[in-house]
Simulated assay, not measured.
Amino acid sequence: MKVTINDKTLEELEELFLKEGYQKFRAKQVFRQIHVNKVNDFDQMTDLSKDMREELSQKFYFPSVKMENEFVSKIDSTKKYLLSLDDGNIIEAVFMNYESRKTICISSQVGCRMGCKFCASTKKGLERDLTAGEILEEVYELERINGDINNIVIMGIGEPLDNFKNITRFISLITDEKGRNLSHRSITLSTSGLVPKIYELADMDIDVNLALSLHYASDEKRRRYMPIANKYSIGQLIKACDYYLDKTKRRVSFEYVVIDGVNNLDEDVNNLVSLFAGKNIHINLIPLNPIEEFAYGKPKNSALRDFRDKLSRKKLNATIRRSMGSDIDASCGQLRNNYAR
């Protein structure tokens, strides 16, 4: 049976190649082709003999992540992609071209089981995890289309820490100095708050930027809209994030989807002050993307600014996330859901 090749470390490839009777340096050639040249076809590895390329294609394969559709903003250069996998499942990714950097937002699962009521990605539940090889190929496919990127945010479809083994392997591979060599600080991982996995990630010295999807400043409200809150309290989340900061020296940001009249009240301001006063954190305010399964609409810009200003007056570091590609705006998971229909 064929096995994937792009999810192997250089050391694992060297061991595999030696067992197959190949010289050790061939593994380094293949590793470089995959992670530096972003090759996903053995026929393109022309530094190998034709016989070796044919032999490798009989033993190994590359997982397929193929662009099915591209949506391009007429306002800026933001692009949204529908990507198909080998089994026919669909995921989404986004390319954002800022003045000083190119950023992509990638998916970590097919669907999601977290059940947040305001999120379209979770409405069909979890189909399966993406493998480390598929996540890598997702990144490399977007780079083949758009050129090398500077930053990765793992904020697309899925809960990254619910796919812990594959997401940490992906991070280790894409930051390997012998391969793609992306900086750890160029990666941001977003989680709805799987507390034990935050501790585990901190202890692995994978010091990527951590973004916690908080969204509500009290346990009562958070439990109403985010099932994960029934398992882990906000106090437990903050303690885990403090541990992450202490271990990695990476400031934690807190994602806060603003739902006007629900979580931007004076009581929410006071609760956020109680949680974060004196802490080195950042609150990222995000306007709600309306979906048909959730009754609330997108907040007015004035409501966002008013909430930010109230937090700033309380000495909390809060900013409003810049809106990119507003003319092709579809909440995370919505493109996939519409495609499936």
Rank of each mutant, 00 (worst) to 15 (best):
Q29I: 12
Q29F: 14
V30I: 13
V30A: 03
I34G: 08
I34S: 08
V36C: 13
V36S: 10
N37L: 15
N37E: 15
V39N: 15
D41A: 11
F42M: 04
D43H: 12
D43C: 12
Q44K: 15
M45L: 11
M45E: 07
T46R: 04
D47K: 08
L48K: 01
L48M: 14
D51G: 10
L56E: 06
S57H: 07
S57L: 04
Q58L: 12
Q58G: 14
F60K: 00
Y61F: 15
F62I: 05
S64D: 13
S64G: 11
K66V: 10
M67A: 14
M67E: 13
N69G: 10
N69D: 14
F71G: 04
F71S: 13
V72T: 11
V72L: 14
D76M: 08
D76Q: 09
T78R: 01
K79R: 12
K79Q: 13
Y81T: 04
L85A: 07
D86Q: 09
G88Y: 06
N89A: 08
E92I: 06
E92K: 00
V94D: 02
V94Q: 00
M96T: 04
Y98F: 11
Y98W: 11
R101P: 06
K102E: 05
K102P: 03
T103R: 03
C105R: 02
C105I: 00
S107M: 05
S108C: 14
Q109N: 07
C112R: 01
M114G: 03
G115S: 07
G115F: 01
F118K: 02
A120V: 05
S121A: 12
K123C: 07
K124L: 10
K124Q: 12
K124F: 13
L126C: 01
L126Q: 00
L126I: 02
E127N: 11
D129Q: 07
L130I: 08
T131A: 02
T131Q: 03
A132L: 07
G133E: 05
E134M: 08
I135G: 02
L136R: 01
L136Q: 06
E137W: 07
E138G: 10
Y140L: 07
Y140N: 03
E141C: 13
R144V: 11
I145Q: 09
I145A: 10
I149Q: 00
I149F: 07
I149C: 01
I149P: 02
N150K: 09
N151V: 03
N151S: 08
I152L: 10
I152D: 01
V153F: 11
G158V: 01
E159A: 10
D162Y: 06
D162P: 01
N163C: 09
N163R: 01
